[in-house]
């Protein structure tokens, strides 16, 4: 029924995306490996965020958006009629560009996902998940004394780490990050990058970024998108030092984008 391969975490084959008449993603095929950070780079409007949002079917919420092609998680087609996007999104977490904590307490922000998915059977277990998630997001030491304080009261960098904690609380196998550091200052960015590096050791992390330096710093693999095409995909070192395509070279040397 499907011809998705089993050895990678996420497989995309000939994915096309339309926003109304606008052909946003053209025939993209990518294999994303487990326990690795994959970066999508490219100029604004190249479709990298659109493609990222396909991976957990966030584009379902946009009425004019149409996705074609094959997208598989662990060899299972995520567009299969039997797939409930809710379950998919619990396994494929997402962190957005702008920190968007719920206007609730820090604790509630992290506990929300596990609670709606029934991951904790008792309050103690939930407390444990919250602590573990906040620790994974390197936020625990800063907020452990004020878990009941509103999440919106934190600084921008802390808010983004809270969003990461919220995303990892459901125990995702893939974490999608849509320019997670673009709204943050350099110090907060460095913290987030360290976190991405750490997370990439245990799960598949896909990060969309404007910053080529960031891609070079945190990712093992890089995909370069241009005008909806996947121009080049390969080892990060190779993309940045010895790009195969002239457009990639033009972009990383600052001539386009």
């Amino acid at each position: 029924m499907n011809n998705c391969s089993q050895d990678t975490k996420v497989t995309a084959k000939n994915v096309n995306v339309w926003y109304g008449d606008n052909h946003a993603i053209k025939d993209v095929s990518v294999d994303i490996s487990d326990r690795m950070v994959t970066a999508f780079i490219g100029p604004s409007g190249c479709g990298k965020s659109t493609f990222l949002r396909c991976l957990n079917r966030m584009n379902d919420t946009i009425p004019t958006c149409r996705v074609e092609g094959e997208l598989c998680l662990d060899g299972e087609d995520i567009h299969d009629a039997r797939v409930d996007p809710v379950e998919l999104r619990a396994r494929v977490g997402m962190v957005f560009q702008k920190p968007n904590p719920f206007p609730k307490s820090i604790y509630e922000n992290v506990a929300y996902g596990p609670r709606i998915h029934g991951l904790a059977r008792s309050r103690a277990e939930l407390d444990e998940i919250v602590e573990k998630s906040l620790r994974r997001a390197a936020l625990w030491d800063e907020v452990k004394d004020r878990l009941q304080a509103p999440g919106t009261g934190l600084s921008g960098g802390q808010q983004q780490r809270l969003c990461i904690a919220r995303a990892v609380a459901t125990g995702p196998e893939v974490l999608l990050m849509d320019e997670p550091a673009s709204a943050l200052d350099p110090i907060a960015t460095a913290q987030i990058e360290e976190l991405i590096d750490e997370l990439g050791r245990s799960i598949a992390v896909v990060i969309v970024t404007h910053s080529m330096q960031q891609a070079a710093r945190v990712s093992q693999r890089t995909a370069f998108f241009h005008l909806g095409d996947l121009v080049e995909y390969g080892e990060t070192d190779q993309i940045f030092t010895n790009p195969a395509d002239s457009r990639t070279e033009a972009y990383i040397t600052g001539r386009i984008g």
């Binding site: 957990n56 966030m58 999104r89 929300y112 709606i116 969003c163 609380a169």
Partner: peptide, 14 residues
């Protein structure tokens, strides 16, 4: 704000 809806959908809320 739509970001709140995205946040909720993103953690797997229906």
């Amino acid at each position: 704000p739509p970001s709140i809806r995205e946040a909720a959908l993103g953690v797997g809320a229906s």
